[in-house]
Simulated scan of single mutants.
Amino acid sequence: MNYQQTIEYLFSRLPMFSKVGDSALKNDLLNIRLLCGILGHPEDRFPSVHIAGTNGKGSTSHMLSAIFQSAGYKTGLYTSPHLHDFRERIRINGEMIPEARVVSFTAEMKQHMETIEPSFFELTVAMAFQWFAEEGIDIAIIETGLGGRLDSTNIISPSFPSLPISASTIRIYWATHQR
């Protein structure tokens, strides 16, 4: 499949909350744990800042990403939703994930997707974490989706307490694997 076919497959095959409502939501973190387990737990290979809250998550995520980049850190950024291009969700130092990587990740995970039946969000979170780990980022800024304890981004493990910042909450995580 080329990039356009891959995106069409992802949008048509995977349940999305915007298309099917509550049936796209899972009542546990099993799918994201299974996906990340298949990938060798990429979420454990970089420190993260987790952004949650009612308002301002996207702005806060982008500002923190810019701050870390300005300080010289190789910074991954995961946000949702996207406006124009699916790849806007997953960036390193402002550069979107390459189309070829979206295609190859989907091809590599297709048989697992058929078995696990992850939501669109679960798959994009796993894709982001895998690309961040492969690229050896210094830190990731991760925005929650719908939030709550069952949000797929919660697979990252806390090492520091939550810090209330404006309407958002920032939680800093350090991976168990240190370079």
Rank of each mutant, 00 (worst) to 15 (best):
S61T: 09
P42R: 10
M127Q: 12
M127N: 07
I139G: 03
E108I: 00
G40L: 09
H84L: 14
E99A: 15
V103W: 05
G94R: 01
R149H: 09
A100Y: 09
A140Q: 07
H41F: 12
R87I: 06
A140N: 07
G72P: 07
R101K: 13
H82T: 07
I51K: 04
S48V: 13
G94N: 01
H41K: 13
V125T: 13
L39P: 09
I137F: 03
T75W: 03
A126K: 00
A140Y: 05
F132E: 03
E88Y: 05
F105I: 09
T144V: 15
V125W: 01
Q69L: 01
I97Q: 04
I141H: 02
E122Y: 07
I139A: 01
R101V: 11
I97Y: 03
P42T: 07
R89V: 01
A128Y: 10
L83K: 00
H82Q: 01
D85E: 09
E95N: 14
G58W: 08
S80V: 11
G136A: 12
E134W: 10
S61H: 01
K57F: 07
E95R: 11
G56V: 03
I141E: 02
S65F: 02
W131A: 09
G58Q: 04
T115E: 15
G148D: 07
T54A: 09
F132G: 02
D85G: 00
G94L: 02
H82F: 08
V49F: 11
Q130W: 08
I51F: 04
M113R: 02
Q69A: 12
L64V: 09
S119R: 07
Q130H: 12
L146Q: 10
Y78L: 12
Q69C: 10
I139M: 06
E135N: 13
Q69T: 13
G53P: 10
S65A: 14
K110H: 11
R87V: 04
E99R: 13
A107H: 14
Y73H: 14
F129S: 03
G58S: 11
D44W: 08
M109S: 14
F46A: 08
V49L: 14
E88R: 02
T75Q: 02
T106A: 13
S48Y: 06
A107Y: 12
E95T: 09
S70P: 01
Q69P: 00
E114L: 13
F121D: 04
E135L: 07
P81W: 03
A133E: 02
G72F: 06
S152L: 06
N93T: 05
P47H: 08
R89D: 00
I90P: 00
G56N: 05
R45G: 13
S119K: 02
I92N: 02
S70D: 14
E43F: 04
L83A: 05
A100N: 08
G40Y: 10
E88G: 03
A71I: 06
I67S: 00
A100S: 12
P47R: 05
H112W: 14
D151A: 07
S119E: 04
H50L: 13
G145T: 03
P118D: 08
I51W: 05
F129M: 15
S48W: 08
I116C: 08
G76I: 00
V102E: 02
W131M: 06
F68Q: 02
E95I: 12
F129A: 08
G136F: 10
